[in-house]
Amino acid sequence: MTVLIHVFVALHIIGIAALLGGFLTQLKAMGRGTARFVPAMLHGAITMLVTGVVLVGLNQADGHHVNNIKIGIKLALLIVILGLVYVKRDEETVDKGMFGLVGALTTANIFIAVLWT
């Protein structure tokens, strides 16, 4: 079971890398006001959602303690991110504030995952 959990942690990290990487590639365009949500951001957010749910289930099934408050906050942030990216995915440009919000929420999600023990 431990190996399976580690595989899903790796997939979860790949998802966050796609989401944050997509954001970072658009920073220069954000400065010009031409940033858009790239497909990698949507795919990364979906990957994070699916692997995160699987990780919670696997950890609970293996008898590990799961901090439900932490997971709930991370899930809420991810749902907001996923909603914004999904709704605006086909637009040529996205408002700087909305684009920045997705980056800030993604960064907050990372810090919650790493620092909240």
Rank of each mutant, 00 (worst) to 15 (best):
N59R: 12
I14E: 00
L82P: 02
V80I: 15
T2K: 07
L11S: 06
I14C: 06
H43P: 00
M48Q: 13
T47Y: 03
V9W: 13
I69T: 11
T34N: 07
G33M: 10
T2C: 05
K88W: 12
G100Q: 07
V9S: 04
H12M: 09
I81E: 02
T34E: 15
V80P: 01
R36T: 08
V54Q: 02
V94A: 07
N109L: 08
M48N: 08
A113Q: 01
I71F: 13
F99R: 03
T117I: 15
G103M: 05
L101F: 08
A104V: 14
V102Q: 01
V9N: 11
H64L: 14
G15Y: 00
V7P: 09
T25V: 15
A104K: 08
M30R: 14
A18E: 01
T51I: 06
G15P: 00
V7M: 14
F23W: 14
G15C: 04
H6G: 02
L42Y: 11
L101G: 02
I81S: 04
G33N: 09
H12G: 07
A29V: 07
A113M: 07
D62Y: 11
A104F: 15
L42P: 01
V7A: 14
G83R: 10
Q26Y: 09
A17F: 14
L42C: 02
L49M: 12
I73A: 08
M30E: 10
V9C: 07
L20S: 12
F23H: 11
Q26R: 11
I81L: 10
H64N: 10
A18H: 00
E91R: 14
H65C: 01
L27H: 09
T2P: 03
I46Y: 12
D95I: 08
L4Q: 07
L75R: 03
V102S: 00
G44F: 03
G15I: 04
A29P: 04
A113G: 03
I13W: 07
A108S: 11
V114D: 03
R89F: 13
L24G: 01
H64Y: 14
I73E: 01
K74W: 03
G31W: 13
G21K: 12
G52V: 05
V53M: 12
A18T: 01
D90M: 13
L75M: 13
T107K: 02
A108K: 04
H43T: 09
G103T: 00
F99N: 00
I73H: 02
W116Y: 07
I79T: 10
M48P: 00
P39M: 09
L78A: 05
A45N: 04
I110T: 05
L101E: 01
V50A: 10
V7S: 10
V94F: 13
T34I: 11
D90T: 14
I13Q: 04
G21E: 06
F111N: 00
G72K: 06
G44M: 03
K74P: 00
Q26W: 08
K28A: 14
F37Q: 03
G100A: 08
G52E: 02
G97S: 12
N68F: 13
K28N: 10
V38K: 11
I112D: 01
L115S: 03
T117G: 12
L75W: 05
N59V: 06
M98F: 12
L105V: 05
M30Q: 12
